[in-house]
Design a binder for these strands. Structure first.
Lengths: 353, 353
DNA sequence: ACCACATCTGACAACGTTGTCCAGACCTCG
DNA sequence: CGAGGTCTGGACAACGTTGTCAGATGTGGT
C-alpha cells in the first residue's frame, strides 16, 4: 500500500504534481506528431497499427487524459445538459432528475444540476451559469415567473424545456401535469363521499401548480354548489408549522371542515402527522393529497392521492430536449400529462353523521 | 407575446442563429480593445466609468455571455466538482447530493453528478468523464472496489473524497458511517428484547457497508452466545421480490426467526410491506432497519431504525474536498460518523411466548 | 523506369478567453 | 516646464484541442 495515493501516483508522473500531460507531451514521448495523437485518442482512421500502439503506450505511461475543456472550445458542443429544479432532495424531484440523467446518458451527455430553492434570482443565476458553461440544453423547473432573461441564450441555440411548471413571458417547450383537473378530480371524490366542508392547503400562489390546484378545488366546489370561503383555503407554503396552524384553524370552530385536500407531497405528509395526532380525540378527517409518496399505502388509513409520475415528466422533458438538439425546430409544444386518482382509504372516510 | 421565443430572440441577434457574440464582437461594437471588455466582464480595476458603460451597453445589445469553456482552458480551474453516487433518486442519497450541492454553491462551484447504478464500470466511466472535464474535485460513493484507475487523476491534482463506502486499493480521504457498530447496536437491541432467532437481510456482500453491517450482526449474535446459521442471513441485494422470498423462507419452518434486521432503507421498506401482509395471521415479527426513512414513525408499529444522517455525510465530504482544494495536503483522513438507534416500536416487539 | 493513387503523418491555424507587457494620456510636483 | 507617476487601453501570446491541407511514403500498373 502506497504511503499516500497522492505521492504514489505522482511518482508515475515524474513528480510534476498538478501538471497534466497534453497531447503534445504524448506526441513527444511517442515520437510522433501532435495530430496523430489526436487521431488515436478519437479513434479516427488513418493511423497504422504500429503507430497507434506506440501512442497508446505513451498515453498510458504519462497518464494522459484528453482535456475536454479544450475540446469543447474547439468543437462548440459540450455534450452536457443543465437541470435547474427546486430541490434535488425532494422525493418528488429526485426521480425526475434521475430520469433526465438516464436519457442524457443514453445520448452521451453529462448532467449538471442545481437547486433553485424556490428563489427566482437563484434560478436565474444557475441557468445563466449553465449557459456560460455552454451546456447544449437546459431543463428548468421554474421558480421565476419571467424567463425573458433566457431569450439571448435560446436565440444562441440553447435548447430549453420547462417541466412541472410553465415558463413565464416566453414561449418555449414545456411538460406539465394536469394540476387543475387532478385537483378537481380529488376534491370531487371527497364530495362524492359526502363531504360538504372541505379545506385546501397548498403552496404559495406564486407557484403555478399551486394556483392550478387551487383552481381545480374551487371549480369542484362550485360545480357541486358548495361554498369555498377564504377560511377553507390556505396558501402559505409548505412549512410544517404553518401547515399545522392552518389545519388546526380549519378543524376548529363550530363548522370545521370534514375533509382536507393537500396541494403537494410536503403538505400531505404534514397533514398525515396532524391527523394521526388528533385521530383518537375526534371523528376522523378525510384526506386526499396531490402527489403520490412512498409508503402512502401502509399508513392507517392508507392515503388516497392524486398521483403524477415525476420520472415520466423528466423523461418526456429530456426526450423533447434531445429532439430539439437533433434539429427539430417545429414551434414550441406543450405536453400535458394526466394525473391518476389512487384511492386507498383516507379519501373515502365519510363525514361525521 | 413573440411568435416563438426562438425567432423573437434571434431577431435581437441579427438572425445569426446558433452563433454567439464573443468579446471581440463586443469590443468592436463598443469601439474598445478586446482586453478592455475582458476587464469589464471580470470587474477588474482600471476601466473608466465611461468606457465601462459603453462596454456594458454593447454586452446587453449583443446578448453576450462569457464562454466559460475558453475561460476554463485559460485559467485551468473549472469551479465545478463531480459527484458519482449510486442512485440520485434514492431517498438516502438525494439529501447527500443536495448537501454537497449547497457546500459547492457556497464555494462558487457547480455540481455535475451521475448515478453509477451500482455498476463498477459505469462508476469508472463517469469518474473519468468528469476528470476529462477537469472538475476541480470528485466525490464518489464507490460501486467499484478498485480505484487505482484514479491514481493519475489524483496525481494530477483532482481532489478526491470517498463517501459512504471506502475506496478500493488506494489511500484517499473518506467519510463513512459506523456501519458495523450501528448494526451491532441494532441487533443487540433486539436481543435485549428477548429475541434469540434473528434474521439479517442485506445488500450484496460486494458492497462494503453491506459487509460491515453483516459483521455487526454476527458480532452481536456471537457476543450473546447465539447461533447465526447461513439460513438466517440473506445477501442477495435489494430487489423486492428477492427480499420477499428471503423473508418468507426465514419466517417459515419449525424454527422461524422472530425478528428481522434490515441492512438498508430499501430492504426495510420491503420488509415493512411483508410484515404488514402477514400481520393478521401470525405473531408480530420485530424489525429494526438500517437507515432512517420518512414516515417511519407513522407506520404501525412505528419502525425502529439505526439512523445515519446522509446530509451530514455529504456535508462532511464536501467540506473535506474544499479543504483540499484550498491547499490542505496532510495525509488522507478517514472520518467516521456515529449512527443513532431510534426506538419507535417495531424493534421492541417481544418474541412469541 | 515512371506515373497515378492510396495511405499515413505532421505543420499550422483556429476556437474565446486571460495574463503580460508596453504605450500613450493625463496629472502632480518640484 | 520637465520629470516622474498614475490611469487607461490595446497588442500579443498562451491555454489544449481539432479541422484543413499538404507533404512523405509506399504500391501497383504501364
Amino acid at each position: 500500500m502506497p504511503h499516500t495515493a497522492r505521492t504514489a501516483a505522482s511518482r508515475q508522473n515524474g513528480g510534476r504534481y498538478g501538471t497534466r500531460p497534453t497531447m503534445k507531451d504524448v506526441a513527444a514521448q511517442a515520437g510522433v506528431g501532435l495530430k496523430t495523437v489526436s487521431r488515436v485518442v478519437n479513434g479516427e482512421a488513418g493511423v497504422s497499427s504500429d503507430t497507434e500502439r506506440r501512442v497508446q503506450e505513451a498515453i498510458t505511461a504519462l497518464g494522459f487524459r484528453r482535456n475536454d475543456s479544450a475540446r469543447v472550445l474547439r468543437k462548440g458542443s459540450t455534450a452536457s445538459i443543465g437541470l435547474v429544479l427546486e430541490d434535488l432532495a425532494d422525493p418528488f424531484y429526485s426521480p425526475l432528475s434521475r430520469a433526465v440523467e438516464e436519457i442524457a446518458r443514453a445520448h452521451g451527455a453529462l448532467l449538471i444540476n442545481g437547486s433553485s430553492a424556490e428563489d427566482p434570482e437563484r434560478e436565474r443565476e444557475l441557468a445563466l451559469a449553465l449557459c456560460a458553461r455552454r451546456v447544449d440544453g437546459l431543463i428548468i423547473v421554474p421558480a421565476s415567473d419571467d424567463h425573458r432573461y433566457l431569450e439571448p441564450e435560446i436565440a444562441a441555440g440553447v435548447a430549453t424545456v420547462f417541466v412541472d411548471r410553465p415558463p413565464g413571458r416566453i414561449d418555449a417547450d414545456m411538460v406539465l401535469s394536469d394540476s387543475a383537473n387532478g385537483a378537481r378530480e380529488g376534491v370531487t371524490h371527497l364530495i362524492a363521499h359526502g363531504h360538504r366542508r372541505i379545506g385546501f392547503i397548498g403552496d404559495h400562489p406564486r407557484i403555478h401548480t399551486a394556483r392550478e390546484r387551487l383552481r381545480g378545488y374551487r371549480e369542484a366546489m362550485a360545480d357541486a354548489g358548495l361554498p369555498s370561503p377564504d377560511s377553507w383555503m390556505a396558501l402559505g407554503g409548505t412549512d410544517p408549522e404553518r401547515v399545522r396552524a392552518d389545519a388546526a384553524r380549519m378543524l376548529a370552530g363550530p363548522e370545521p371542515v370534514t375533509a382536507l385536500f393537500a396541494g403537494n407531497n410536503r403538505v400531505t405528509v404534514t397533514l398525515v402527522r396532524v391527523l394521526a395526532e388528533i385521530a383518537e380525540r375526534e371523528h376522523p378527517v378525510a384526506l386526499v393529497g396531490f402527489d403520490d409518496f412512498e409508503l402512502a399505502d401502509l399508513l392507517s388509513p392508507p392515503v388516497t392521492v392524486v398521483a403524477q409520475d415525476p420520472a415520466e415528466l423528466g423523461r418526456s422533458a429530456a426526450e423533447l430536449l434531445f429532439r430539439r438538439l437533433d434539429g427539430a425546430d417545429d414551434p414550441p409544444r406543450r405536453v400535458t400529462r394526466p394525473t391518476r386518482l389512487v384511492t386507498r382509504g383516507s379519501g373515502e372516510v365519510p363525514p361525521p353523521a
